[in-house]
Computed example of a mutant assay.
Amino acid sequence: MSRRVVCLRHGQTLWNVEHRFQGHSDIPLDETGVAQAARAASLLAALRPTMIVSSDLQRAFDTASALGRLVGLSVSVDKDLRERGGGEWEGLTREEISAGWPREFADWEAPGGEVVTDVAERVSSSIRRWAERLEPDGLLVIASHGAAIRLGIAKLIGLPEELWPALGGLGNCSWSVLEEGRKGWRLMEHNAGTLPEPVQSDDSPEVTQD
């Protein structure tokens, strides 16, 4: 038996639709996002999760709560599962960012924001910390954010930093599955729950959303 972790991205928000950088801004789910969370909950309930932990931001917590209500589990909160902080870019569209900070936009490094290595470290450490509480056959569901999940997984499975961009983003209410093996954590599924589609998140200038 192996411990497993499902990393679930939150449902859609208005800022997702408007292509705005969300970061630490506490933006709620919109009507579509609420429906996405309910659908994801109905699918993930079949996996019989034994623990649910969420970012402290409302869009992630409400996504996690939809699953918690369905399976009868309370949702723990961990601030370390927050999205990458966007500094001066939060609330701005990609067009506004590229116009105002062309050099920083090319590197996707927001003035006053978090660097990717810090995000990867805090998210991967959080996943490890909560996974250690699981029984040997337990299933943990982490509700978090697009960039946070991608960077945390990359760090957790030991990808060299230069290869982190090879791991694609997640659509709203899609998830990735990690399983603990004899030599560490393995990525078993990535961006599951939807057909292939453009993904936009607070992740890089190339992707088209969190």
Score class of each variant (00 low, 15 high):
S125K: 10
E162K: 06
E96P: 14
L195T: 08
E189L: 13
G169H: 12
A66W: 02
T208F: 09
I153H: 04
S42C: 09
G146C: 15
T63V: 02
K155V: 11
A154K: 00
G169W: 05
I52A: 01
K155Y: 11
P205N: 09
T194D: 12
P165I: 07
L170P: 08
A66Y: 03
I153K: 05
E132A: 08
R182N: 10
T194N: 12
A46H: 02
A110N: 13
W15N: 11
R3L: 07
N172A: 09
L140K: 04
Q36M: 06
G33P: 08
G11C: 08
W130Y: 13
A131F: 06
S174M: 07
V5A: 10
L163Q: 14
R48G: 02
L170M: 14
D30F: 04
E162R: 10
E197P: 01
K155G: 13
V119E: 13
F21P: 10
S2M: 06
A64R: 00
T93F: 05
V75A: 00
E109I: 12
V6H: 03
E31K: 06
R129C: 14
L29Q: 08
A148V: 06
Q58Y: 07
V141Y: 06
G169Y: 06
A66K: 09
D107Y: 08
G138R: 03
G112E: 10
S54Q: 02
E161M: 13
A147E: 15
L167F: 10
D107G: 15
D210K: 14
T63I: 03
R3S: 07
S74P: 01
A147Q: 15
A35Y: 02
A106Y: 07
S201H: 15
A154C: 08
H145N: 11
R122E: 10
